[in-house]
Each structure stands twice: as C-alpha cells, then as structure tokens.
Simulated assay, not measured.
Amino acid sequence: MRILYLLLPFILLLVHSAAGSSLAPGNKKECVRQKGYCGFLKCSFPYVVKGKCSRFFFCCKK
C-alpha cells in the first residue's frame, strides 16, 4: 500500500509532461510555417485537418 503513495507522483509527472507534447500546429503562424492554411470549419478535398488555428479555423495540410 505504501508503494502507491510513491508511484502516484511519478505517474502524475508523466501524464503532465505528455499533455504538452503535441506536434500539431496550435496557431496560424505555426500552420503556415508547416506549409498549411487555415480553413473555416473544414478543409477542401485534398487537404485534411492537422491542427487548430483558432476556435473555428482548422489547420489544413496535405
């Protein structure tokens, strides 16, 4: 039972560090830098959503 008290902080530390390690673009500058464009709510045919530019705009890339 004591081992759970020792493991809990390590598990929380791993989860916390993994939460911020996303490679998807998070804003318009990152999207354009990664050769994408910001589309309103959807992307045109050859492109797929790869991240978010803002609340209603998604980063579209091939």
Rank of each mutant, 00 (worst) to 15 (best):
M1G: 14
R2N: 10
I3A: 13
I3Y: 12
I3G: 00
Y5M: 07
L6M: 11
L6G: 03
L6I: 13
L7N: 00
L7T: 09
L7H: 00
L8V: 04
P9V: 01
P9T: 09
P9K: 06
P9G: 08
F10G: 04
F10H: 06
F10A: 06
I11F: 12
I11H: 01
I11C: 01
I11Y: 00
L12E: 04
L12I: 05
L12V: 10
L13N: 10
L13S: 12
L13H: 00
L14S: 10
L14D: 07
V15Q: 07
H16P: 01
H16N: 10
S17A: 07
S17Y: 01
S17E: 11
S17C: 01
A18T: 15
A18V: 06
G20T: 07
S21A: 14
L23E: 06
L23F: 01
A24V: 14
A24Y: 15
P25A: 13
P25S: 15
P25W: 10
G26W: 11
G26R: 12
G26P: 05
K28S: 15
K28A: 13
K29V: 12
K29N: 14
K29A: 14
E30S: 11
E30Y: 09
E30H: 03
C31W: 02
C31D: 01
V32D: 11
V32F: 14
R33I: 04
R33Y: 08
R33V: 04
Q34F: 09
Q34C: 01
Y37L: 06
Y37R: 02
Y37M: 02
Y37C: 11
Y37S: 02
Y37W: 09
C38F: 06
G39C: 06
G39T: 03
G39K: 02
G39R: 02
F40R: 05
F40W: 14
K42E: 11
K42T: 13
K42W: 08
K42R: 12
C43G: 02
C43R: 00
F45N: 13
F45R: 13
F45L: 12
F45Q: 08
Y47W: 08
Y47A: 02
V48T: 15
V48R: 12
V49P: 00
V49M: 12
V49F: 00
K50N: 12
K50D: 03
K52V: 04
K52W: 13
K52H: 14
C53E: 04
C53G: 01
C53Q: 04
C53D: 03
C53S: 08
S54Y: 08
S54E: 11
S54P: 03
R55Y: 07
F56N: 05
F56Q: 08
F56H: 09
F56C: 06
C59H: 00
C59G: 06
C59Y: 10
C60V: 07
C60L: 14
C60I: 12
K61N: 03
K61A: 12
K61D: 06
K61W: 02
K62D: 03
